[in-house]
Design a protein around this nucleic acid. Structure first.
Length: 350
DNA sequence: AATGCGGGGCG
DNA sequence: CGCCCAGCATT
């Protein structure tokens, strides 16, 4: 009797237990590569549950790669609004245009072709090749890193162990059913071998694992923690006719690139306007401050409202636009700004 | 090799 | 409240 190998255990598990997701098909042979492309961009550093509604909205509006390539960036960003990491939206849009122009709309299957596209790195290229085209590439994401760091009980911090884990993962890649294999590993990582609580008792890989119990597995992979600093920002809501508010088109780099935002200062290096001009505006502070957490810093948000604001008090390099409150949902607004706008709407209605 | 880049959900 | 997530690009 031959011993079952890890990849077979994963594939067997996948065929019975995999999650039903909108970019997946019943058979590995019938994957829609465009769906895989879109989903992989959205899934970069973002959990499946968050992505699903955005994916459905995205592909119902941009239902193939040609429609996407022909769309305006602002349109793409407005569908992406709330999902975060907005550079991904621009990169996906750019990538779709290149694929239409250079590859006649056919998503390339080669690693070098894929990684040459904006927003596609080692992981995404490998994932597209394996998931959409069933090619045996070495796909290693956060889930798979976690699984192998537990299976092999890797006792060095994860940022220094990545190379070693890649080598381990590579040895397990099967020759067939790679699509089911990599997605199976990710599903196991997301539903069983989870970061905090792992359900080792129902794990198909228990026999392969050196830390197969919950108390030990929670310590892997080993991570070093970083210090989060606090910044303070003042955001200006400039209201006209009691029904519209001034938004500005953000710069095309850095935080909230190309998004529609409120003028603000105090928390970023780049300035929208001269601080003095904002400070001289007649307005009133909302009494309640709140905190908003980014990955690398925490922001204390203060809000100033200026009513009957006339635009010529401010001049800046950014494109200025007054948007009616009822039209805000069509704009490409990040969640932080949406939260501020919600506070302001409450005050204006009272 | 380290850092910037969102947002939500969960323990 | 801290941690984490189907990573990539830049420095």
């Amino acid at each position: 009797m031959s011993k079952i190998i890890l990849s077979d255990a994963v594939i067997n598990w996948y065929e019975k237990n995999h999650r039903k997701l909108p970019w997946r098909s019943a058979t590995a042979e019938h994957y829609n590569p465009y769906y895989v492309l879109v989903s992989e961009f959205m899934l970069q550093q973002t959990v499946v549950k968050t992505v699903i509604p955005y994916f459905n909205k995205f592909v119902s509006k941009f239902y193939n790669i040609f429609i996407l390539a022909d769309a305006d960036l602002d349109e793409v960003l407005s569908v992406w609004s709330g999902l975060g990491y907005y550079r991904r939206a621009k990169n996906l849009h750019e990538t779709s245009k290149i694929i239409c122009k250079k590859y006649n709309g056919i998503i390339p299957k080669g690693y070098d072709d894929l990684t040459s596209l904006p927003g596609i790195g080692d992981y995404t290229a490998s994932a597209i090749m394996s998931i959409a085209f069933n090619y045996p590439s070495n796909v290693v994401d956060g889930n798979i890193e976690r699984i192998f760091s537990r299976i092999n009980k890797i006792d060095i911090p994860i940022n220094k162990a990545k190379k070693k884990i890649r080598l381990i993962a590579k040895k397990h890649v099967p020759k067939s059913k790679v699509s089911f294999y990599v997605q199976g590993l990710m599903d196991i990582g997301a539903t069983i071998c989870k970061p905090k609580i792992s359900k080792c008792f129902e794990c198909p890989l228990e026999n392969f694992c050196r830390v197969s119990n919950r108390d030990e597995s929670i310590n892997y992979p080993i991570k070093e923690k970083k210090i989060i600093k606090i910044r303070k920002g003042i955001f200006y809501c400039l209201i006209k006719n009691n029904n519209s508010i001034m938004l500005i088109k953000n710069r095309n780099k850095g935080l909230f690139a190309n998004m529609d935002v409120l003028p603000s200062f105090g928390w970023e290096k780049e300035k929208y306007f001269e601080d003095e001009k904002l400070k001289n505006l007649e307005g009133y502070n909302l009494p309640n401050k709140f905190y908003y957490a980014f990955t690398h810093f925490k922001l204390e948000v203060s809000i100033v409202i200026c009513k009957n604001f006339s635009k010529n008090e401010l001049t800046g390099i950014n494109k200025i636009e007054f948007v009616k409150f009822v039209d805000l949902e069509k704009k490409a607004i990040p969640s932080l700004i949406k939260k501020i706008l919600d506070e302001v709407k409450k005050c204006i209605l009272i």
